[in-house]
Design a protein around this nucleic acid. Structure first.
Lengths: 172, 172
DNA sequence: TGCAACCGATTGCAAAATGCAATCGGATTG
DNA sequence: CAATCCGATTGCATTTTGCAATCGGTTGCA
């Protein structure tokens, strides 16, 4: 697939890649949620994506060079989707989108804590995260010293802490 | 208008605001192109937006709080569209989108020079630009010392320099 | 060996969004 | 007073979206 080419403007071309309601959501779930399989993306989707749309977008994202697909050696039917470098470098865009949404839109606390952390961490944290994604998806050597919590672990821990605190304040 | 609320995730909510092919294009033309009138947005649109879609998106962006509309005192039929603070703070997102598109997509040189400048300038330049937009659209006092070229002037000059150079290299 | 659960999709269909072309009534300009 | 410009609106065909059901094959378990 090649994109429309309405114009050669970088913002326009970026919009032609993910100027729809689902492409960036799928990439978000892969990047921040660590999803790698079709069913994970389908069943754990917060927004309730339909299977035909998911299939269509995965295909499109592969054709555009943002994802690759490989067989899962442990299961003859399973496919493993991986982010390409092109998709991994979306992290700063995701961070800015999250930061903006957190300020201006009716976000929930538990779903925005990750955006807050990512914003506070700034470019150094984004770089560390991208490095981890390269390790996870491209097999690149990891630069983070062993024992250090990964960015995704930090984000997950913060999320769970909020969920727990909110649950506690109701029952306590 | 209130958005769909598929989920309270900031990235999802941001996508519900401008996860379509035109909303961000219109905002881009207002932010970087300085467009304020319906006809300017319609006739100078690189991507060729249709008038019904433009009308629909302007209405939607107003309902979402990204734009305001006012009468043009010089012409009883003219409406002046202004960016709100909510829209002005999209500048970092625009910059990141431009930077990413410039790397990964088939941009043209003259249309990506502005993205390059914005990327090189980084957050300090974005802040200066947002300050100018606040002055232009919200009537805020300008912090930039008089005599300093505005960011939009710098971007425009760079664009025209490329266009001129490319035209020269053909005829020379 | 049988069967339920799971795998990545595909199909059919209705509803909504998109995009194009023509046109609206009023305001302004020459 | 005619041509042009103003911000839209209308009609209509095409495309995209989203939901629900289902596909053929694989796997895990009794």
């Amino acid at each position: 697939m090649s994109i429309d080419r309405r114009s050669g403007c970088p913002i326009n071309l970026s919009l032609e890649v993910f100027g729809d309601r689902w492409s960036l959501i799928i990439l978000r779930d892969m990047i921040f949620g660590g999803r790698r399989h079709f069913r994970e993306l389908l069943n754990f989707s917060l927004e309730g994506i339909a299977s035909n749309i998911l299939a269509d977008r995965l295909k499109r994202l592969m054709e555009l060079g943002l994802l690759t697909k490989a067989d899962d050696p442990s299961h003859k039917q399973k496919a493993i989707y991986s982010l390409t470098e092109m998709a991994i470098t979306l992290v700063p865009i995701m961070a800015q989108l999250g930061a903006w949404g957190r300020v201006w839109l009716p976000v929930t606390e538990e779903l925005s804590i990750r955006a807050e952390l990512l914003e506070k961490g700034g470019p150094p944290l984004w770089d560390q995260f991208m490095d981890e994604l390269r390790h996870e998806h491209l097999g690149a050597p990891s630069k983070t010293p062993p024992g250090t919590p990964t960015v995704r672990q930090q984000l997950r821990a913060a999320y769970e802490e909020v969920v727990e605190r909110k649950a506690g304040s109701v029952t306590a």
